[in-house]
């Protein structure tokens, strides 16, 4: 592990449910996240792509300490994150912050923007009143909003403005890492570009590291240095954004890329109708993508494929027994 690693996720696992009922029966368990290992380097943007239910949001919540992994380790700057979140979330929140998907729902409807933005300054940084005022105007300037907005209520804002307030709140504590969970998917396209540009500017200005989660491949491609593709709670492919999008090795990544609509693309590749996600309560023994995979062989249904590097490319790892070649 090199020195540049800021966040290290090692075999993280999150199981929901499980345990026993009061009569001793077993409760069904779902593996939301399974055996996820990623290193996030200082200053990079790691994109995480996947469809709904693939566990990407659960992973995001574990990174910021809103959820606790049931297995594996997540370390931030060498500190065990899960242990810290349980004891003192404030210390972790000074370094790791979160931007929510729904900008309006993440702002308390009965609080002014000033109150919302002051909370992290008071509770995390313990700033006095004059310093808070100074910091507030810095923050509003950073997200390109007029300071008059501070005394407004959330419902008076458009989605794009509300999301910028969400970003300002995440910035308030001066964190090192920001986890962005679908930050633009609730926004109109013209506003989406505004927010993406602001995020890009902030990253340079404050030396931030981003974990950027989205289901939109083109958005992830435009912001990420490295990309991890998740399917059914596991990482199926990870590597530099450019190489993954140009030469996907895992058949699922390939399917995602072929399905994504793009201006000027007339026909979309589509599978047969009976291809569905496997039942999470009854996961298949081998590769979760087996039923949908055009390249499947017998081994895929028996064994879980490990995440392995391509022969000549150390950086691009795929969890597939029969990866696509041509890289």
């Amino acid at each position: 592990m090199d020195d540049g690693v800021l966040l290290s996720i090692d075999g993280a696992e999150r199981v929901f449910g499980g345990g026993r009922t009061i009569f001793g029966g077993k409760k069904p368990a779902v593996h939301a996240v399974q055996d996820v290992t990623i290193d996030v380097r200082k200053g990079e943007t790691l994109g995480i792509v996947g469809e709904s239910g693939c566990g990407k949001s659960t992973l995001a919540r574990m990174i910021v300490g809103l959820d606790v992994p049931t297995g594996g380790r997540i370390t931030f700057d060498g500190r065990d994150l899960a242990a810290e979140a349980g004891k003192d979330l404030r210390r972790l929140s000074r370094d790791v912050q979160y931007v929510f998907q729904d900008p309006v729902a993440s702002l308390n409807p009965r609080k002014t923007i000033r109150t919302i933005l002051e909370a992290p300054l008071i509770h995390l940084l313990r700033l006095g009143k004059p310093e808070r005022e100074k910091r507030l105007s810095e923050l509003m300037d950073a997200v390109n909003l007029a300071p008059e907005f501070l005394d407004r209520y959330p419902h008076e804002f458009s989605g794009g403005q509300a999301q910028r307030i969400g970003i300002a709140r995440a910035l308030a504590a001066d964190p090192k890492l920001i986890v962005l969970d679908e930050p633009v998917s609730a926004l109109d396209v013209s506003v989406q570009a505004q927010v993406l540009n602001i995020l890009d500017g902030l990253k340079e200005r404050f030396g931030l590291t981003y974990v950027f989660i989205s289901h939109d491949l083109s958005v992830v491609e435009s912001v990420s240095d490295r990309v991890a593709v998740m399917y059914f709670g596991r990482i199926v492919e990870i590597g530099a954004g450019r190489s993954i999008f140009r030469t996907p090795r895992h058949p699922y990544t390939h399917l995602l890329l072929e399905s994504a609509p793009a201006p000027g693309r007339k026909s979309l590749l589509s599978e047969d109708a009976d291809t569905e996600l496997p039942d999470p309560y009854n996961p298949p023994p081998g590769c979760a993508f087996y039923a949908r995979c055009p390249r499947r062989t017998d081994i895929c249904n028996r064994q879980e494929p490990p995440l392995e590097a391509a022969p000549h490319q150390e950086e691009q790892l795929a969890a597939c027994f029969n990866p696509r070649e041509g890289a």
Partner: peptide, 10 residues
Amino acid sequence: EFVDAARLSG
């Protein structure tokens, strides 16, 4: 979500 946000605000 705003409750989670408040928690992350310390």
